[in-house]
């Protein structure tokens, strides 16, 4: 898929969780959202974008979410709810 679309969608999600003053909680929320609503191939594509292009254009909260909760987002570990 067009990765720029994924970047925009991820950033849109980030905008919502930015209201959370505790950024780690915000990142948790964004990560959960990606995990719960995104098809795995989209999530994987976003992760490779992070790995391969450094995640240019992604909001910091997305970057934090991808980094902190990588395994869950990749679908390799159940979320720790």
């Amino acid at each position: 898929m067009d990765v720029q679309r994924l970047v925009k969608m991820a950033n849109d999600i980030a905008s919502f969780f930015e209201a959370e003053p505790d950024t780690s909680k915000g990142a948790r929320g964004a990560a959960d959202h990606l995990k719960n609503f995104w098809d795995p191939r989209m999530r994987r594509q976003l992760l490779s974008y992070l790995d391969e292009q450094g995640g240019a254009g992604l909001k910091s909260i997305v970057l934090e979410a991808l980094r902190q909760h990588r395994l869950e987002i990749a679908g390799q570990q159940p979320p720790d709810r």
Binding site: M1, D2, N36, F37, D39, R41
Partner: peptide, 18 residues
């Protein structure tokens, strides 16, 4: 166990060939 594609994602995936 993983969520699938939503409508706009389907369109994107179609253009992407997947």
């Amino acid at each position: 166990p993983e969520p699938g594609l939503r409508i706009p994602n389907m369109f994107d995936a179609a253009l992407d060939g997947s």
